[in-house]
Structures are given as C-alpha cells and as structure tokens.
Design a protein around this nucleic acid. Structure first.
Lengths: 202, 202
DNA sequence: ATAATAGTTCAACATATGTTGAATTAGCCC
DNA sequence: GGGCTAATTCAACATATGTTGAACTATTAT
C-alpha cells in the first residue's frame, strides 16, 4: 500500500562516474575566493559541491590541504608569464607587467586575488608560503634582468605597486580605479613600474 | 593554625581605582593588531588585560563594539597630517607623503596597519567603513590640490602605491623592503608618487 | 554470481567562541 | 555603620566548526 517512491538513496556510493574530488576543488576555489580561508567553512564548500562535508577529509585529508590544492594552485602559471614578459626586452617591461597583471586577475573577476590577500592577512603561515613562492617564482627571475644596483629592492618595489594596485582594485574597490579600463591604468602605472626596474633609485 | 594567606579575593569588585575599560581598550588594540578581527578572541583580549572575558560585554556590549572603539580609533589624526602635508606646497609632496606614511606606521611597529588590512580583508563591512573614511578624510583633501585632470584617479593611484608599500613592509614583510630605512624608501618611492600627483597620466 | 573495494552519507564528538545570569565583593551616600 | 549600586568573576549555554567512525551502496575484480 504505502506508495513510498524509491528516491535516490541517501547513503552509500553514488551511481555514475561522478567526480566528487573535482567538484570539491571547484567549489573550494569559489568559496575561498568569496569568503577567505576562515570564512569558508567545510560545510559550505561541500554543500556547494553537492556532497557531504566528510568528503573533504576523505579526498584531501582536511581543510588546510584542500586550501593548498584549491587556491595555491593558481589558475595560471606565474613562472611562464614572467618568462614570457622578460622575452620582450626591458625597455617597456613596466608597461607589459601592468597589462599582464591586470588582464590575468581581471579574468577571475578579481576574486582569486582577494582570496589570496584575505588568506595572507589572516594566517601568518599562508604569508610564509606566499613569500617563499614569490621569491622563487617571481623575484628570482626578475633579479637578473633589471638594473644592476639593488635588484632585490627593485623587485620588492615592483611588487609593492602591483599588490597595492590589486588591493585597491579587487579588495577595497576604490573608484574610479576599480572601474578604469586596463589600458588607461597601463598608461598611468606602467612608467612608474618601469622606473623601479631601470630608473635611478635615489 | 592553618596559615591560609588571604589572597586577593577571586570574585567581586576589585579594590583600588582600576580602570578596566581602558585596560581592555589597550589590550584590544594589541591583540587585534597581532591577530586581526577573527583571530583575536574575547578571552585572549580579556586575559591580556588581566580581567574576565565577560567584561567585554559589560563595558562595550560585545566584541564588535570593542573592535570599533579599539582599531578604528586610530593612534593619530589623518586629517591633520594631510592638511599639514599640503601646506608645504606640491613640488615635493610625493616625497613628503611617503616619509609621513612610513614614520607614522613605523611608530606602531607596523601592527596597526596590519590589523587594518586584516580587518578589511576579512570583513566586507569594515572595508566599507574604511572606504568611506578614505574618501572623506584623504581623497577629498587631496583632490583639490593635485593636477587638474582626473584628480580622483590620481588620489587612487597614490593610495595604491601607499597601500602596497604598507602590505609589503608590514604584512608580507618582503626583504629587503621591510628592513630598508625610511629615507632610502623615500628616495625610491617619492618620485613615483609625485608623478601620480602632478605628472602626465598617459 | 560473489566477494572485495571504494565512494558516500549520517550522526556524533571535541573543541572553540561569544554571550548571559547568578553570585560575590568593593566603593559610595546618608 | 548600613544599605545601595557598580564592578567583577564564575559557570554554563548556545552555537559553530573541523573531524571521525560506523553504516550503507555502487562499482570492480574474480
């Protein structure tokens, strides 16, 4: 009598070749982007992926490992980008750095950059990881190409302008900078970056 | 016989004119500086102040209100600083802005700047408050003094370089920039800020 | 087909945290 | 000095969160 329709069973393995791991990674990138490390809960991420929270531990071993795979696995390869930039010579390198920076992060809607900043700000450990990352992937490559005196400082100065640009455009969202089009900002900021690369520092 | 020394009683009102409210404010500034809004727990702040966690609710009504009084009440007056900077004319304003920025935040050991960034990053609301604050106290004053074309964008650009400098020096702590002395950075960064103020933007 | 394995959910645990109310004590006013 | 008020601590609550183990089901291997 009881017309209990056999719904999709709640427990046990799902039918079909579902890729829960990939779904979690995608959801994690989204939620970490929106909420930062602390704000993003395992439950929220799992819900977005349509699976149980326990899957995070099953597939990644925990929240922190998931973060490592989701956010630090950037949606592009910085090493390649920089190598490519350096091929173009150093004369208008500042301009090209700014353009590459903006087009790269704009493509993500700025969310990934904001997530990185949030995580760096919240966790000293994350800051350490990123510092290491910058040193090996960005600064090391730049150092050999810029002017001879104080190349490390020059790389830091470039980083300061780029990070500040990212914070103002993607996190704090100051107008009109947040709404300006890429080429206008390239013209405004590029020459300053160029001075950090090849100009006199005092 | 029992030589039980009468220790300071654990409960009840304390003897002497203790200013618990001020102690909490001081502790809150410290802990928020070190840990950011989420990282700083009410219990940690209260412990640092040497009182019970319930005092936060008693004196401030809750953690959020305490944060508002502790961190947003900056240890200096930005409006005055900027007004003073503008009195010196516009020719080397960029240099003087960088010097004022560094000496101001260096005095706090960089902790207050880091706390602001952490809070902005973690809470959208805090970001709104600060954006408003910047607009009224900083940008509005600058806008009338810089070059005529696109004064708002110029102010944003200056902010981007200053914020980036702060993040690299106080939050991410990239070397050698984090360890450089103030005047070296003034010489390196000042001219770039000056260009944002008075130079051509394209 | 049957057994083994991997994937999945559920419930529960342990911990951390902001908050609250009762109990307790010091200062103040008459 | 006696009562009233404010200050303070303690214990407990409610909630949120990362994690874990048991139970259950689809797939895979034999």
């Amino acid at each position: 009598m009881a017309d209990e329709v056999q719904q999709t069973p709640k427990r046990g393995r799902r039918p079909g070749g579902t890729d829960t791991r990939a779904a979690l990674l995608a959801a994690a990138r989204e939620v970490f982007s929106e909420q930062g490390y602390d704000g993003a809960t395992v439950r929220t991420i799992a819900a977005r992926a349509g699976v149980d929270a326990a899957m995070v531990n099953h597939w990644f071993g925990g929240k922190e490992a998931l973060f490592g795979e989701a956010v630090l696995q950037l949606p592009f390869n910085p090493k390649e980008i920089i190598a490519h930039l350096l091929e173009g010579g150093i004369d208008d390198l500042g301009t090209r750095i700014v353009r590459a920076f903006l087009t790269t992060w704009d493509a993500q809607g700025g969310g990934v950059f904001a997530a990185l900043i949030r995580s760096v700000a919240a966790h000293e450990q994350v800051a350490d990881v990123l510092r290491e990352f910058f040193l090996k992937n960005v600064f090391a490559q730049l150092a050999g190409k810029v002017a001879d005196d104080r190349p490390d400082l020059r790389a830091n100065l470039v980083a300061s302008q780029m990070i500040g640009l990212g914070v103002v455009r993607y996190v704090a969202k100051f107008d009109p900078l947040a709404e300006s089009d890429v080429e206008a900002l390239v013209r405004a900021i590029g020459p300053n970056v160029q001075r950090y690369l090849t100009g006199p520092l005092d």
